[in-house]
Amino acid sequence: MSSIPISLLELEDDASSCLVADDYQKKEGKWCAGCGDFGALNAVKRLLAKEQLKPEKMAFVSGIGCSSRFPHYVNAYGFHGIHGRALPIATGVKLARPDLDVFVVMGDGDCTSIGAGHWIHATRYNTNMTVLLLDNNIYGLTKNQTSPTTPQGYTSNTSPKGSVLPALDPLQATLGVSNASFVAQTADWVPAHLYATLQAAFDHKGFSFVRILQRCPKFTPDVFTENVKNPDLTELLVHEEGVNAPGLDKLFKAMREHDPKNIDEARALAQRKDLLRLGIFFKDSNLPVYDEIRAVPPVSPEEKVQRLEKEFDRYAV
């Protein structure tokens, strides 16, 4: 994703124009106490400050859900759309305005259920945008219904005897789509990893898909507990091309060298459920990017009118 470069010199010249993370907070987030969405918001604010993005040069697009309230809390242009349809809107925004940095925030119901068709195709379009899937394994806003990512056997208001099917794995699904160019997983309870992953996603040119495991103390308080308590159940994917945040090696014992260019290994790792894996599963910067392929040079109104006259000559009687 193209960022607006601001040299250090410029920053020193005009220190007052330097924005800090809190400058990117528009309103106080209204999520429940302890909600993992706060962590995601904090990481995003840090990223925006680090990149010194101008509020008017960003668009945050979301669907409907607890997580989709996100744009209201960011000091940027935002489009809080309809359930499941954030990706088509974001695609339209980016096609119209390649100069904007586009971010998409979706919930697991939003992205992997009602919006699943768009998700597959947006992955294939590989339009340049940073995509956050806030996956709490449940429908939060509508109060506790089973989502495609709910673990098998987990009870909810719509599955009082427990979810009957194996959970859908968003990483495997995304990695299976042709032209997928960036697939990563991180967790709200590892802020350093979350931030570094978002940074890598932002730096990648293309559809950068980040699944963020997000705690919902309200409805799925226990789905991630084991992992939160015991870091040994987590394996970090590391590589010079991957996510590298300071201090993580002290927290996590299990580390695996994984070259994000290796799609076969990425798929195999996504499929294995022995440990929770965080990091960049796959990254390829050489794939076609939709907004670049479809870019056409602007034409002046005068020129358009001249061309139209020629067009009409074809139909002249």
Binding site: F79, G81, R85, P88, T91, K94, H121, R294
Partner: peptide
């Protein structure tokens, strides 16, 4: 200076148009 975007379905077609207009 324009494009035709063939979307994955009519819902997306409306969404892309709306996003572009918003932009």
């Amino acid at each position: 200076g324009g494009i035709v975007h063939q979307a994955e379905d009519e819902i997306a077609a409306a969404g892309v148009a709306l996003g572009a207009s918003y932009g």
